[in-house]
């Protein structure tokens, strides 16, 4: 594979920490550097490690990654001119105001004091925090603080934006507000984000990657991921439920439920049987949640989890 512009490419990328912990296997994939890419996975799946390597914060142990043809190791200086990062657990500095913090960040990017403050105020207004622009960050709510960090990257002219779990810990309304902001941002820049919220990936991402045990299990648009399954319906029932012989596929999820991926006709037939036996179950068209659980369970049963 050769590195090209307009593309983020990983070739056999891996990370083993000095304590011997293997966080990332040999990951290879390629995605265009436009729109929103969401990386989903369980805790410890390797999302943060991959994000930190791609955002030039962490050195990989082996393999190669390029963004728009620039190597994350050799061309880090050039890449840093074009990128902005909000790390996992990144926090606003408590003794500064949003204007002061975002302004300082822009100055670290090389802008002058006045220009930085003006851009900071614009970005703060874009995330709806203009009334809080000059209040201390320590007085803001958790949702507002996350918006300040997002405003920081909005204020920058970075074309490549890395956000590690930007919506973790937010209430549903704040989360939705943040998703709206990110959706708008993703129209102009490339967003690489990680999330635990499958709903988030489903709602805002153009492309989704599923990471499990340091390995990339699936990658594509939501329709592409759906098409990988060849099934349209997902039926879930408690473990131990007596089920008929099926044509679809069945896996035991990590939450203890048996999940059957099947066709609409078979889902209807199984449902009828379960209703007659008064067994609890749920059935729905395949969602990202179903795809995620299915692929992760399949990967783990194939020995993919370390």
């Amino acid at each position: 594979m050769s590195a090209t512009a307009g593309e983020l490419r990983c070739e056999g990328l891996g990370k083993v920490y000095p304590n011997g912990k293997k966080a990332l296997g040999s990951v290879s994939f390629s995605i265009p550097t436009n729109g929103i890419f969401a990386l989903i996975g369980r805790n410890g799946a390797g999302k943060t490690t991959l994000t930190r390597i791609l955002s030039t914060i962490l050195e990989p142990s082996y393999g190669k990654a390029t963004i728009d043809g620039l190597d994350v190791m050799a061309d880090a200086t050039r890449l840093r001119e074009r990128m902005a990062v909000v790390p996992q657990e990144g926090r606003t500095i408590s003794w500064t105001t949003p204007t002061q913090m975002i302004g300082s960040y822009l100055m670290w990017r090389g802008l002058g004091y006045e220009e930085s403050r003006a851009k900071a105020r614009e970005a703060i207004a874009q995330v709806g925090l203009e009334k809080h622009a000059d209040k201390l960050n320590s007085t803001l709510s958790g949702g507002m603080k996350r918006k300040v960090l997002v405003a920081m990257v909005i204020a920058s002219d970075a074309e490549l934006v890395f956000l590690d779990e930007p919506s973790t810990g937010l209430d549903p309304i704040s989360r939705q507000e943040l998703w709206n902001i990110l959706t708008e941002l993703g129209k102009k820049r490339f967003l690489f984000l990680t999330t635990h919220y499958l709903e988030e990936a489903e709602q805002i991402a153009d492309r989704i990657g599923i990471l499990n045990g340091g390995n990339l299990v699936a990658l594509g648009t939501l329709p592409e991921l759906r098409s990988k399954l060849q099934y349209t319906y997902s039926l879930k029932a408690p473990r131990g439920t007596a089920l008929p012989t099926i044509q679809g596929e069945s896996v035991t999820r990590r939450d203890g439920q048996v999940q059957i991926m099947t066709t609409e006709d078979e889902a209807l037939a199984i449902s009828k049987g379960l209703i007659e036996r008064k067994t609890q179950f749920s059935v729905n068209p395949v969602t990202l949640d179903d795809i995620f659980h299915y692929l992760v369970a399949q990967n783990e049963s194939a020995g993919g989890r370390t």
Partner: peptide, 15 residues
Amino acid sequence: NDFKLQDIVVGSPTI
């Protein structure tokens, strides 16, 4: 360690 500011700055043009 607390604010993760160094990660933010490493991923920026500052040396």
